[in-house]
Amino acid sequence: MGKAITNINRYSVSEEEKRDKDFAEVKEAVADNKDAILKGIQLLKALEEGGTLDTAYAFTNAKRTALERVVQEISKEQYTPLLENLPSLIFLIGELDVNGIRDLTKRLNKGIEEMEQVPSDEKSNVLDVMKALKDPDVNRSLTMMLGFLRGMGRS
């Protein structure tokens, strides 16, 4: 029973009421998801202990600017070769014979160890070298090196 009206008195909730309501809502959500939230807290704790949380926080805050800066910087001409090399480098790693290199590295290390024990003023004459060839360790080293030189020349 009435004329057309358009005025609306907005329902106003006091700040306190609103906060109480929000709190109740959150409380309910917490209760409903107890396990997940506890796990979440553990996760946060782990991140905090490792210092990751601070980093992530700082990065998130500066995400847009950081990205802009990085993109701007990295787009400069001087990085072009780097950027273009980056994927090639990755592919290169894929092609390396890691086991071979590991073996070689071990041998290199051993060699260095041995080398360090040789007094710095000691000298060898041709005879010493000929004699050393009879030492199976020296002989193997030389044979391997010759093989390496052959292979490198071929490719």
């Binding site: 990205l67 802009e68 993109v71 701007q72 990295i74 787009s75 950027l83 273009e84 994927p87 090639s88």
Partner: peptide
Amino acid sequence: FLTDQKPGILKSMIELTKKVETG
């Protein structure tokens, strides 16, 4: 996730994408 950028940055990112993602 990365498309909401200023036009200049977007252009740089397009270039960057192409450089990094060779092939």
